[in-house]
């Protein structure tokens, strides 16, 4: 199976493979924008409560761990890079390299996920799970701080769900890449998977400063 590409005939509804790939990319962008609106709604809710409870939120945000946030950011950025490299490799028909780079991406994604679990466990251990038994050590209103932690868990949790979906999707394309189902002339599903992973990264690029880094210098104004 060294160079035995499967035929590059387009699916029956298309005129050419080029058209098929163009449409797939266009469709994927529409889906990504839909996904963005999901997070848009979450960020909106978060912003609304920042506006309503600025003091409490500013204090509560201090309880998040900047180190975890930074490390997770770096891990995810590198994982996006390996996806970009994998696509470049695939475009040059270096399929083994591409599959390997996707393997690295999965490893990095798992690292992120494990860090997330450890972070959650710490927060829950500190009594910061915003449900019955919420124990808030801060000075501001515990009710309002509880809302902060609700959004923290909801936003990072929704992100984590997307991360898992992205990991699964990457897992599903690795073998077909090795087998030659996807190759330099046709790799729309791989590209779609890559785009999805980048979106997960872009969302986190916003989650990091908006959750972990708020109110660090004291005085939000």
């Amino acid at each position: 199976m060294s160079h035995g590409h499967k035929g590059v005939a387009p699916a029956h509804q298309f005129e050419s493979v080029e058209q098929q790939q163009r449409v797939a990319r266009f469709g994927m962008w529409m889906f990504l924008i839909s996904e963005t609106m999901i997070f848009g709604a979450l960020f909106t809710g978060y912003a609304v409560y920042w506006t309503l409870y600025p003091e409490a939120f500013q204090e509560a945000a201090q309880f998040l761990d900047v180190t975890y946030g930074t490390v997770m950011t770096v891990v995810l950025l590198v994982s996006s890079t390996t996806v970009a490299l994998a696509i470049t490799a695939l475009e040059g028909d270096r399929r083994r390299l591409a599959a390997g780079l996707f393997g690295v991406t999965i490893a990095l994604g798992l690292v992120f996920f494990v860090l997330k679990i450890i972070e959650y466990a710490e927060k829950i251990g500190d009594g910061l799970l915003p449900t019955r038994g919420f124990e808030y050590p801060g000075a501001e209103s515990a009710d309002q701080a509880q809302v902060f932690f609700s959004w923290y868990f909801v936003i990072t949790g929704t992100h984590a769900v997307h991360l898992i979906v992205g990991l699964a999707a990457i897992g599903f394309v690795i073998w077909p890449i090795l087998r030659g189902t996807y190759h330099a002339k046709y790799f729309s599903p791989v590209e779609g998977t890559g785009l999805y992973w980048h979106l997960v990264d872009v969302i986190w690029i916003f989650v990091f400063p908006l959750l972990y880094l708020m109110g660090r210098a004291g005085g939000m104004g």
Binding site: G45, V48, Y49, L52, Y53, L129, P130, T131, R132, S141, D143, Q144, Q146, V147, F149, S150, W151, F153, V154
Partner: peptide, 16 residues
């Protein structure tokens, strides 16, 4: 789960 998002009893904003 009883976490506060929209319920004013839990600090939430139902108008949101």
């Amino acid at each position: 789960t009883g976490i506060g998002i929209f319920d004013p009893g839990l600090g939430g904003d139902p108008v949101l």
